[in-house]
Design a protein around this nucleic acid. Structure first.
Lengths: 146, 146
DNA sequence: TATTGTTATACTCTATAACTATA
DNA sequence: TATAGTTATAGAGTATAACAATA
């Protein structure tokens, strides 16, 4: 990078810019780690929610991942065709469909999650353990306000 | 959000996920603030670099914003057609083109930057001043490692 | 009437390769 | 041979509106 930039970084006053750039590095690493498992960031995220205990509907998943419900349809379609998740009827609401990971989906999720965590260490390398915890805590409050 | 989710948040162990979700909120706010000024996040970012002192080439801009050089072409095309930036020849390298903001471009940038900063306060509302500084410092190290 | 999942469509963003002019 | 800018293209992501089944 140009030396003038190093000394006076444009946009660095905008937290939004720093977030975006840090996120770009992080996303690239995650995408890279997931490729070997046949997943992308978004399909991995949906699979992770399907593997959770909460028995989430497609609507829940859309809200949690900040996706449009129509996007969740095709993501679940894909995972279902690969035998990684199933759509189960919600007993309390016949409109809703609960997305649940199959055994194979759970196995893949565990392996992929491990890969993501390992690769994440590189992105987080500039921070020591204390700073990583601090960052997670701050991001948590931004990501889930209230 | 479902109450089970509030107590045990899936994916919250992945810093990448927290970054992505915080960034999604932040991006939406910035996009919203910029709309009134006829800018998007990416065109605003390019304009901000053109308004900086460093006299950056398109290549510099691409690297700084994590964009492909070919994307910068059309972003600069658009800003140039609107009279907000000009392409100036680099005296030291006749291949390169320096992107410089016009007076009108500088005015728009100042107004847009103000709007982004104001709107950003809402996103950062869960954090007090000390935490905001801490977050910026941590993100800076992730965004610009070395 | 409102909500869930779905389909369809258009638009933006991303990734890649090739070309030209310069270095 | 390598780099800066450009063009072209395909694929992924995003935003919106409409519809059927159900609440």
């Amino acid at each position: 990078m140009k030396s003038e930039l190093r000394t006076h970084l444009p946009l660095s006053g905008d937290t939004a810019f720093l977030l975006a750039r840090a996120n770009a590095r992080s996303l690239a690493a995650a995408h890279d780690a997931l490729g070997a498992h046949g997943l992308r960031v978004r399909s991995y995220s949906v699979l992770a929610l399907a593997a959770a205990e909460a028995r989430l509907s497609q609507r829940d998943i859309a809200e949690y991942l900040w996706l449009d419900p129509s996007q969740v349809v095709s993501l679940v379609d894909d995972l279902q065709q690969r035998g990684l998740v199933t759509r189960e009827p919600d007993e309390n609401d016949r409109r809703a469909k609960v997305v649940v990971a199959t055994d194979e989906g759970r196995r893949l999720h565990r392996a992929a999650a491990r890969a993501v965590r390992e690769r994440e260490q590189e992105t987080l390398e500039p921070l020591d353990e204390t700073d990583r915890d601090r960052l997670r805590e701050l991001l948590m409050r931004l990501a889930f306000p209230l």
